[in-house]
Nucleic acid binder design. Structure first.
Lengths: 141, 141
DNA sequence: TATTGTTATACTCTATAACTATA
DNA sequence: TATAGTTATAGAGTATAACAATA
């Protein structure tokens, strides 16, 4: 962007920390607007991609399996998810979003206006570049 | 990066969610290696830039002021920070990192190897580009 | 024997409300 | 009156350890 590279890894990590804080704050606020905690919102977001076993959920959210019990308990009590026995392994319970759960999850994403507006300040090509860079840093190994 | 833009805002937000999740996981693990919670690590990171009043800390970490009391209590008990009375306003307490607090904070950052290695896969120019894009999305308004 | 999910426990985080000491 | 920080409280997240059911 400039002729002189001015971004050492330390400064970039600092900015990443600030960016994460902004994103996470936006997400937490959006979840709170549906009376959900950030952890509950994260679980719903993961389940929006499809059903998952308790253990798999815990792995994805990088928390202990015992935590998932309470989180899913509270979401189930509100009718946002339900537990279903796995047909192939009777130890396993699959967690599935209900229709109301899908609605709430989509509402959370729609409410993340700060992040959305930030992204929409970029041109289509810059969004493409950001996508590619993030993928190289955080996804590919 | 390609001639055809393929990155709509929704997909980019999804990738952002995954990327920041990876960063947060890396940070949480690094903090845990120093026997600190993520919130404690975040507070130290903010204080690494310089002293801050309790209220200002709560604002930066977007949590209620009453939470800071407990978080700073625990950090102070471990000798990582200390409270100092403000010279200009006797209601205010400034929180300052101790030398040990600085050491621990730097150790956390040094431990974030997954993120660091991800960033170091980029050329200096690509790091510059990523810096500029993140700043435009999350910092400038 | 190993794994899945749950329970019990203890500690931490979080917001709300009420309090004090300042301003 | 308003603000900075603390305390009390209750609900939620978190890891550890132990357990029953199943593989």
């Amino acid at each position: 962007m400039t002729g002189t590279p001015r971004t050492d890894t330390g400064r970039l990590m600092e900015l990443l920390s600030v960016s994460l804080g902004a994103y996470y704050g936006d997400f937490t606020l959006a979840a709170a607007s549906e009376n959900l905690t950030a952890s509950q919102g994260k679980a719903l977001t993961v389940l929006r991609r499809g059903p998952a076993a308790m253990r798999s959920l815990a792995d994805t959210l990088t928390c202990d399996a015992s935590n998932m019990t309470g989180i899913i308990d509270r979401l189930e009590k509100r009718g946002l998810v339900r537990r279903e026995p796995s047909p192939s392994d009777r130890r396993v319970k699959n967690v599935v979003l209900t229709a109301e759960g899908e609605r709430v999850t989509d509402a959370i994403r729609a409410r993340m206006s700060a992040t959305r507006e930030g992204l929409e300040r970029l041109s289509a090509q810059d969004r493409d570049t950001l996508h590619s860079l993030l993928e190289r840093v955080f996804v590919s190994q």
